[in-house]
Each structure stands twice: as structure tokens, then as C-alpha cells.
């Protein structure tokens, strides 16, 4: 029984069957990659886990509880954090403030009327956010406006914001897209290190096979809204169907 159990999930956008009949089980404390060509429905599937979309059919269980019908903030409070395909951060706020907000959400819950104490007096939050910035190698940028960060740094900040909440399940949607090779390698190292240091389950969508094969313990290949195969990286590499549907294209490219 995995920490995330997806059963018979289907989602239709008008005439397009974006997800067919998806079954997926993500084992606790594993790194599970979801790969597939553009438009395969990977982001759509992820959106069904976090309350952004409600599937037409099927069920999504996190740690034995259904996430369907819950609001995004409730699902986050259950222990799922998500990094978006295009970075979603607080552009008008400083990097430090960006890091502090998820810490507040973790400590105080979904709403806390903390109107008369000052932010600067919140020692624990400052320490936590500062530590996270150091871990993310961003401490020197703490006063910068988040909007002025490079794309790679924005992504890293967003990953850090998610990690600061000690999520049990971290969902990453193409975390290295648009990153330079060096940044990509840094991200791989970072995620490996995170994996070593904490009990965390990671589900990652990624086009970059280097990233996938460096991190994943299991891989699900999605094509046209249905899982083609699910197996270990070694078996996926040699799988004829996968080569044909997906890897063949990248190998040729």
C-alpha cells in the first residue's frame, strides 16, 4: 500500500480524454518519476492530486485518506507540497519573506489572526527560513525581490519553500525545465541530498532523462492519458514499448 494510491482516474476536457484510466501507486519514501511525451497528461494527473482539478472518475488516496473534494490548502496541510511547471512564487516579496510564508503556514495552520505581533519577533520562523535559504544556497539573495531572480533560482526557491514545510509527499513538475546544465546537476544533487536526510516521498515529472535516471527508483510512462508501463529504471531503459513510444524519440534526437 503506497502513500499515494491512484485508482481508475479519468479526466476529460471537452472532447479530449486527457486521462484515461490511470492507476498508480507511489511507495512511501521512494522517488517515483512520471514520464511521457508532451500532452500525455502528466501535469493534469498532478493537478488531480492537489485539488487543482477534480477527476471525473476514480479515487486519489493520500495516506489512506481521499484528497478529492478537498481544497488545495487543505491538501497541503495534509502533507503534500507542490512545485509548479512555471515557478509560482511571491514575486513582490523578498526571497526571505517567500521562505517565511510557508513556515508560517506550517506552524500556524491555514489561518491565524496574527495582526499585532511583529514579523521580526518570530525567531523560530526566521531561523527555519534562514536555514532553508542556506540549504538552498540562496542565503546571499535573501533581500532580493523574488521576481528579479533567474528562472533557475526561482525554481530553487520554490523547491525550498515546499521543503520548508517538511512535506511527506513532494510533487515536482519538470523542476529542471529551462535550467542550464550546471543548475540541473545542482538540483539533482539537492534532491538526492534531501532524500538522504529526510523521510520524504517524491513524485517527479521530468523530460530530462538524465535527471530521471539519476533519481528515480520507479518510473511510470504515461502516453495519451494512460500508463504504458511502470517499472524500475533499468527495465524501463530496455523496454521495447517505451523505446518506441518515448525514449526512441529522445535517443534519435
Amino acid at each position: 500500500m503506497g502513500i499515494l494510491e491512484v485508482k481508475n482516474v479519468g479526466k476529460r476536457f471537452g472532447g479530449l480524454q486527457a486521462l484515461g484510466n490511470v492507476n498508480l501507486s507511489v511507495a512511501e519514501n521512494s522517488v517515483h518519476a512520471i514520464i511521457g511525451p508532451n500532452g500525455a497528461g502528466k501535469s493534469t494527473l498532478l493537478n488531480c492530486f492537489v485539488g487543482k482539478l477534480i477527476p471525473d472518475t476514480g479515487s486519489v488516496m493520500f495516506d489512506g485518506q481521499s484528497v478529492l473534494g478537498r481544497k488545495p490548502f487543505e491538501i497541503n496541510q495534509m502533507g503534500i507540497s507542490r512545485v509548479f511547471q512555471t515557478p509560482e512564487i511571491f514575486g513582490d516579496l523578498s526571497v526571505m519573506e517567500n521562505m517565511m510564508i510557508p513556515c508560517f503556514a506550517k506552524r500556524d495552520g491555514a489561518f491565524e489572526m496574527n495582526a499585532l505581533s511583529s514579523v521580526s519577533s518570530q525567531r523560530d520562523i526566521h531561523e527555519k527560513a534562514e536555514q532553508m535559504l542556506v540549504d538552498m544556497n540562496m542565503a546571499d539573495k535573501r533581500h532580493m525581490n523574488a521576481a528579479s531572480l533567474s528562472r533557475g533560482d526561482k525554481r530553487r526557491l520554490e523547491i525550498g519553500m515546499c521543503l520548508s514545510q517538511d512535506p511527506r509527499l513532494l510533487l515536482l513538475d519538470e523542476p529542471t525545465a529551462g535550467m542550464a546544465r550546471a543548475d540541473t546537476n545542482n538540483t539533482i544533487d539537492l534532491l538526492k541530498q534531501i532524500k538522504e536526510e529526510r523521510d520524504i516521498t517524491i513524485a517527479i515529472i521530468e523530460h530530462d532523462m538524465h535527471v530521471v535516471f539519476s533519481l528515480a527508483e520507479r518510473i511510470t510512462v504515461l502516453a495519451q492519458g494512460t500508463p504504458l508501463v511502470e517499472d524500475t529504471p533499468d527495465n524501463i531503459k530496455g523496454h521495447p514499448k517505451v523505446r518506441e513510444a518515448y525514449l526512441g524519440e529522445t535517443a534519435a534526437a
Binding site: P72, F73, F90
Partner: peptide, 12 residues
């Protein structure tokens, strides 16, 4: 700044 990020950060 970003309501979407707020929601997915566990804030109502």
C-alpha cells in the same frame, strides 16, 4: 502577490 501560491502553501 500570488493567491495560487498561497493556496498551495496551505493558507486559506
Amino acid at each position: 502577490s500570488n493567491q495560487q501560491r498561497m493556496n498551495y502553501t496551505g493558507l486559506n
